[in-house]
């Protein structure tokens, strides 16, 4: 390992050694809603994440930032269960969920949105949002075929709840019967948030919630995210490039670079961090760059 990188790694290990017992202690008091430790993910010879660890405090907004290719979305995919990390643990309210499949994690209360909107194009806004309630509904195949009776009762209950809690909240009443494919980009993002909220999640993971939005749409989204946190008490973990938004609304920031955590803390602390500035703006020291390149080849 080259010097620069080795230093980072050691620092992380040190923190983890201190951090792990803390995690155990925290879970008993219920402070960390989500805790990631020692997460390492390789794609063949490429190391996407190495020894990533951080805690997400319950009821907070935690932002993950970092340059392109830093491993933010890979980290999200590990947490929601699409990637199987080679090492490390993901704890959800103290319970190790590393071995669970995505649907099982959803059932526990982990919801997410995608960077490039993953709505169901063939359905209306309302049906998309109803799908968020899927795991909490009981209708089985036979009930569904018969419909009248149990299935109908449940459908109406869910409809009422979605209308009153989600659709009104996100101000999308006017488009509820529109097919998703006909909506503008900003509205689609909002519908995806609505679908995630319909899950009544404990933790909401947002992958670039305001990417590609104009100023007004960004402000709307920021307001919704804050309202979700405050009114619903949902813990939020988000990946975002819009530094203005990150600094304004997040309580805690984790900075990733080349698959490693290089800084974490309150927004103001992180922006002042030497390494973060270097990661974003580049370092003047050519020797360090050489060392880093040599390091990636060695890995």
């Amino acid at each position: 390992m080259p010097k620069a990188r080795g230093f980072d790694g050691e620092e992380n290990e040190d923190e983890d050694r201190v951090g792990r017992p803390q995690v155990a202690a925290m879970t008993s008091t219920g402070d960390a809603a989500l805790s990631v430790s020692g997460l390492t993910l390789n794609f063949g010879g490429l190391r996407a994440l190495s020894d990533v660890g951080f805690d997400v405090a319950e009821g907070s907004i935690t932002a993950i930032i970092g340059p392109n290719g830093a491993g933010k979305t890979s980290l999200f995919n590990c947490i929601s269960g699409f990637y199987r990390p080679q090492a490390g643990a993901i704890r959800f309210e103290g319970r190790d969920i590393s071995r669970l499949h995505p649907p099982e994690r959803a059932r526990l209360g982990l919801a997410r949105t995608f960077q490039n909107i993953a709505l169901f194009r063939g359905m209306t806004v309302l049906d998309n949002i109803k799908l968020g309630r899927h795991v909490h509904m009981r209708t089985n195949l036979l009930d569904g075929l018969i419909y009248w009776g149990r299935a109908q009762r449940e459908e109406i209950e869910v409809r009422a709840e979605i209308e009153e809690r989600v659709i009104d909240f996100l101000e999308i009443n006017h488009i509820r019967n529109h097919p998703v494919a006909s909506l503008a980009y900003g509205l689609r993002k909002r519908v995806e948030l609505a679908r995630a909220l319909a899950m009544r999640p404990k933790i909401l993971m947002l992958d670039e919630p305001v990417a590609g939005m104009n100023r007004e749409e960004t402000e709307d989204m920021a307001r919704f995210i804050l309202d979700v946190k405050e009114e619903w008490g949902v813990t939020i973990l988000m990946v975002e490039h819009d530094m203005g938004l990150v600094m304004d609304i997040s309580d805690h920031v984790v900075v990733l670079n080349f698959g490693q955590v290089i800084a974490r803390g309150a927004p103001a602390e992180v922006t002042a961090d030497e390494q973060v500035i270097r990661a974003y703006l580049g370092a003047g020291d050519i020797g360090q760059l050489k060392a880093r390149i040599a390091g990636t080849e060695a890995a």
Binding site: S80, F82, P102, P103, A106, R112, F120, H134, M199
Partner: peptide, 8 residues
């Protein structure tokens, strides 16, 4: 993929 994330 999003079906799986929604618990299907």
């Amino acid at each position: 993929i999003s079906a799986e994330v929604l618990g299907i």
